[in-house]
Design a binder for these strands. Structure first.
Length: 1031
RNA sequence: GGGCGUUUAACUCAGCGGUUAGAGUGCCUCCCUUACAAGGAGGAAGUCGGGGGUUCGAGUCCCUCAACGCCCACCA
């Protein structure tokens, strides 16, 4: 006799047990198999979107990684060589600022106090801790990653790929030095990222001035500004092209009085708004993002930087040089007053950007940065952006859902150059060494001298070293196109450099460069530069394996691991389609010459219960580990799969589980957003802190876990399968594996197998189309409604019948076997538990012929059943039987009948049931289990069992008084009215010639059948009503 | 400002041109029946956001209005 399972599924016990088991067996490790010896289907590869090492897993990760695991487990079962590459991302800004904040809070030190090396060391410590935590959490959700291949975007393998890519792009002229407006913190003298700034509404002056038009005495053009000092850097004034007031002035020059420069009046529809202010704006490209963009459209106007890094005016400001920008503001305004060019001043509230860290106002500041050129090439061939677009428009890379291809194409279509340098310390340092051009005769002489160095020349000849000089190499920089004559000088303190890039790590070359006065850039690369390489860098590109790779890892080796490239599917969220997906395609095509993945599946977004996105700053996150703890990992995964629908983002309302008494306390919106730090349980009146992503514990009160009933379905489903298996194991005594002949099976078996085959097909198709929610629904319906509610119930009688028992056992075991396979990708723990239990008692099972089951569900073959099993006829007949049984049950329930005679009367009075009953009378016989289905609560008592199967219709009418005749008549009348409505609708449809002519034949036939059906139903209802009335 | 999406039962969501619109949860009634009370059986509950249109036929397609959400740009 089989070991008996406990009564309920214990998710916690299963989780650790099977994780250890799977890992011990090495199921998740993949080795290339180019000869297709072991895996004729070839590889199926997913690279994980590497989570940041900044913190813990959140609900988005849970969703994203569950779906990846579903795919990878499914493909593994389908016989693909499945590889899921795990890893983490160093996430430059995010990680550095987290650690900086920590250091500041704990030691009151800034990064400058620590110094670069020390700060970087602290961040590595942080990374080691949080990487371990995140990977541990991933493992806990059941992620079947090939952990031996775990990578980090800063590890040597990835660093090598970064260096190689940078070098190649530099060599090929795709990487260039250019200028960009950054958020400048004049206090800390550093640039800050957009998300390290905040805007505050600030009271500010709003001045209006006028410039005299050159050559037209008494003609002025007036404009308004909140920053008068930037007039020193004006290079144009701008009006709207359709503005009649200024049309005649466009193309004329005006005098910039402080500097004496003459600047043009230009027309630009994007910058000037004729409705606003005077309709005319001053243009200061170096100190305003909009003006900067305008300059890019009109490069001939020139660009002038007037600020020093400390916020004082530089030499471009002439007599104002050295003044603080706010002092300069007053002085500049004063001068305009003196000249009679001041019009007026008002007060205005303007949003002003501030630096998070110094709390001082941000200055847009022109600085030198490195860029990747995205535009088309001068030789007419597609550039990087175009190549990446072509990969999608040609269909080589497909998006699911399709509409997201549009975001991708729109964004790449702008072909905006990619700024890849960041003024940070945490990241891949830019592999460029620079030195100012020292010689009077400029770059050419400088280069000639440089090339006289033997090491340098040799390295260059061998293609290990490349250098560039501003302006000589191909550049899209507008300044190189500045129109002669008109031009204001380009003022930059850093223009005249020789920049040298070397391939790979070459200590000798570096030291040579150093001796020649070259220093390496302080900047690091944009995080996305290294994550862009993720699909090929993690596979060891450009190869071969690095010697320093630890022995206990599988050292990635491009020669060998190229096998996995292109990867199969990328699963990610829509907000990084541009930042990440587009750039992976780009670098994949550029480095490898092939797309990085065939499919991109974009996941829905998990919203809070109030429809807003979850974020750390809002404090409305939900911890997946809370969910796992309360409902189990299988339930969490099922819930995630269920909400992964095609179009919808999903709201996830949560409640706080009181840590004292377990009462569920509803969450109000204000409880999130970190406003409410304390709640009182309405049940036990004790205090607790609401759940959420709190950084630390509150010593005074425990933190609630967050629950959500959206996970109950999955938990209950796991338990249902657990108990179905438990039932089977209790009834397997005498089980003998053997083939079944479908043609000889009773109706319910044929129905079940038809449903199993249909479901299997549908599930496989849904997975193929990334319709995850459908997968969950199909399985739930089949397992719960069809297998448990109907088939198992009907099998109970047969299991007691010695003749029918062996077949029933085989079908039960065979179908359960299929169910466990189908469910495994979604709910690996419960399915593995049951698989193992079943293996003990029925190791040989399967339909139509048994075979020895695999040792683990994780490597069991994905099922597929013959189409011939699918029988519309059997399914239709069974469906009518179900209707009948439901009808009987309804009567039984409605009248609470436990007496056969009374019940039979009630049945007669329920028209639908009576009609079905007659129609099915001939069919009921062979359904061995029907008695169980229609019996009441006391089935166990033999005298009642089966009492309803063959009703004696003649006896009813006279007994009608036993039921509530008035209520029943009312009900019947309502039913008749409803049916007549339906009848009218159908009739008018069929009377309509256009319908009959233009609708598909089967639809018309459907309507005819329906009409006949309704007519019959009405007739029966009316007859019953009459019977009832006369009784 | 541009783009995308959503609006169907009390809640969370399916349904995307053709029977009398579904599920889970919640609610009501009955039942601790030897797989499962994390369960079984049944029931009540919806003018499918408003308004137009296309069609023989519209939650389903088109237009429009409204509300909500997301992404991007921007706020002299």
């Amino acid at each position: 006799m089989a070991t008996e399972l406990p009564k309920a599924y214990d998710s916690k016990a299963a989780q650790e047990k099977w994780l250890t088991f799977w890992e011990g067996k090495g199921y998740f490790h993949s080795e290339p198999d180019p000869e297709k010896k072991k895996y004729p289907n070839g590889p199926y590869t997913i690279v994980i979107p590497p989570p940041n090492v900044t913190g813990a897993l959140h609900m988005g990760h849970a969703l994203n990684n569950t779906l990846q695991d579903v795919l990878i487990r499914w493909k593994r079962m389908q016989g693909f060589n499945a590889l899921w590459m795990p890893g983490t991302d160093h996430a430059g800004i995010a990680t550095q600022s987290v650690v900086e904040r920590l250091v500041l809070a704990q030691e009151k030190k800034t990064r400058h106090d620590l110094g670069r090396d020390e700060l970087v060391k602290r961040i590595w410590d942080w990374k080691d801790k949080y990487e371990a935590r995140i990977l541990g959490q991933l493992r806990e959700i059941g992620a079947s990653c090939d952990w031996k291949r775990t990578r980090f975007t800063l590890d040597p393998v990835c660093a090598r790929a970064v260096r190689e890519t940078f070098f190649r792009m530099f060599r090929d002229g795709y990487i260039y030095r250019g200028k960009r407006l950054v958020n400048w913190d004049t206090h800390l003298q550093t640039s800050v990222a957009d998300d390290e700034t905040y805007t505050e509404d600030t009271k500010s002056g709003f001045w209006t001035f006028k410039y005299p038009v050159d050559g037209m005495p008494d003609t002025f053009i007036s404009f308004s500004t909140t920053r008068p000092e930037t007039m020193l850097g004006d290079t144009a004034v701008c009006v709207h092209p359709t503005d009649e007031r200024y049309k005649a002035l466009v193309g004329k020059l005006v005098l910039q009085p402080h500097t004496g420069r003459k600047i043009p009046i230009i027309a630009d529809g994007q910058l000037a708004d004729p409705e606003l202010g005077t309709g005319c704006v001053k243009v200061t490209p170096a100190h305003d993002p909009n003006d900067y963009a305008c300059w890019q459209r009109h490069p001939e106007i020139g660009i002038i930087n007037i600020l020093n890094p400390d916020g004082t005016i530089n030499e471009a400001g002439g007599e104002y040089k050295g003044l603080d920008r706010y002092k300069a503001r007053e002085a500049v305004t004063e001068k305009m007053k003196e000249l009679g060019l001041y019009v007026d001043k008002s007060e205005r509230i303007v949003p002003m950007p501030f630096s998070d860290r110094s709390k001082t106002p941000i200055e847009p500041f022109l600085s030198d940065q490195w860029f990747v050129k995205m535009s088309d090439r001068e030789d007419g061939k597609p550039g990087l952006a175009q190549m990446s677009m072509d990969a999608v428009t040609s269909g080589k890379v497909k998006f699911f859902p399709e509409r997201y291809a549009r975001s991708y194409l729109d964004w790449l279509g702008e072909k905006r150059d990619w700024c890849i340098s960041r003024q940070l310390w945490w990241g891949h340092r830019i592999p460029v060494w620079s030195r100012p051009v020292q010689d009077q005769d400029g770059y050419k002489a400088s280069r000639a001298r440089f090339m006289l160095e033997p090491e340098i020349r040799t390295a260059h000849e061998q293609g290990r070293l490349e250098f560039e000089y501003q302006g000589e190499r191909a550049s899209t920089q507008p300044e190189s196109r500045t129109a002669p004559g008109r031009a204001t000088a380009v003022v930059s303190t850093t223009s005249n450099f020789i920049h040298v890039c070397i391939a790979g790590d070459d200590a000798a070359l570096v030291s040579k460069l150093s001796s020649l006065g070259f220093t390496q850039s302080d900047d690091v690369l944009d995080t996305w530069f290294s994550s862009a390489l993720w699909p090929h860098s993690t596979l060891g590109w450009p190869g071969p394996a690095l010697p320093e790779e630890r022995a206990d890892r599988t050292a990635p080796d491009w020669e060998r691991d190229r096998y996995y490239y292109p990867t199969s599917t990328l699963v990610t969220s829509r907000d990084i389609i541009t930042l990440w997906v587009a750039r992976m395609v780009l670098t994949g095509l550029y480095n490898v010459g092939d797309i990085p993945f065939h499919h991109v599946y974009i996941t829905p977004k998990v919203l809070d219960g109030f429809g807003e996105g979850m974020s750390k700053t809002k404090g409305n996150g939900v911890d997946p580990l809370d969910i796992i703890d309360l409902y189990g990992t299988d339930a969490m995964r099922y819930g995630m799969v269920k909400l992964a629908t095609e179009t919808q983002d999903a709201k996830l309302p949560v409640s706080n589980i009181c840590p004292h008494c377990g009462k569920e306390v509803a969450v109000k919106q204000e409880h999130m957003y970190m406003r409410t730090k304390k709640l009182t349980c309405p049940e036990c009146k004790k205090e607790f802190r609401p759940g959420g992503p709190w950084q630390t514990d509150d010593p005074d009160r425990p933190t609630a876990k967050q629950g959500s009933d959206r996970f109950e379905e999955g938990r209950n489903f796991a338990n249902k399968m657990w108990n179905a298996t438990r039932f089977l194991l209790m009834n397997l005594e005498g089980y003998a594996a053997g083939p079944v002949n479908i043609a000889e099976l009773p109706t319910e078996d044929r129905w079940l197998l038809s449903r199993l085959a249909t479901t299997t097909k549908a599930v496989t198709a849904a997975l193929d189309g990334y319709k995850f929610s459908d997968v969950a629904r199909l399985l739930y319906d089949f397992v719960w409604s069809e297998f448990c509610d109907w088939y198992i119930e009907m099998s109970k009688g047969r299991l007691k019948d010695a003749a029918a028992r062996p077949t029933a056992q085989r079908v039960l075991a065979g179908v359960l076997d299929g169910i466990l396979r189908l469910v495994h990708p979604l709910m690996p723990f419960v399915s593995e538990s049951l698989w193992q239990a079943l293996n003990e008692t029925a190791p040989e099972r399967g339909l139509p012929s048994p075979a020895k089951a695999e040792e683990s569900a994780a490597i069991a073959a994905w099922p597929s059943y013959p189409d011939a099993w699918i029988s519309a006829d059997v399914e239709a007949r069974f469906a009518r039987m179900q209707e009948l049984v439901r009808g009987v049950r309804e009567i039984r329930n409605r009248y609470q009948v436990d007496d056969k005679t009374k019940l039979d009367v009630a049945v007669k009075c329920s028209a639908a049931v009576a009609a079905e009953f007659n129609a099915l009378a001939a069919f009921i016989g062979p359904l061995a289990g029907i008695a169980t289905l229609t019996a009441g609560p006391d089935t166990a008592k033999p005298k009642q069992a089966g009492g309803l199967v063959k009703p004696d219709f003649e006896a009813y009418v006279s007994l009608a008084g036993l039921i509530d005749a008035a209520a029943e008549m009312k009900r019947l009348e309502k039913q008749i009215t409803d049916k007549r409505k339906a009848l009218d609708g159908t009739r008018s449809k069929l009377a309509n010639e256009k319908f009959v002519n233009s609708a598909p034949a089967e639809v018309v036939q459907q309507q005819r059948d329906l009409l006949a059906d309704i007519e019959k139903q009405i007739a029966t209802l009316e007859e019953n009503l009459k019977d009832l009335q006369s009784a």
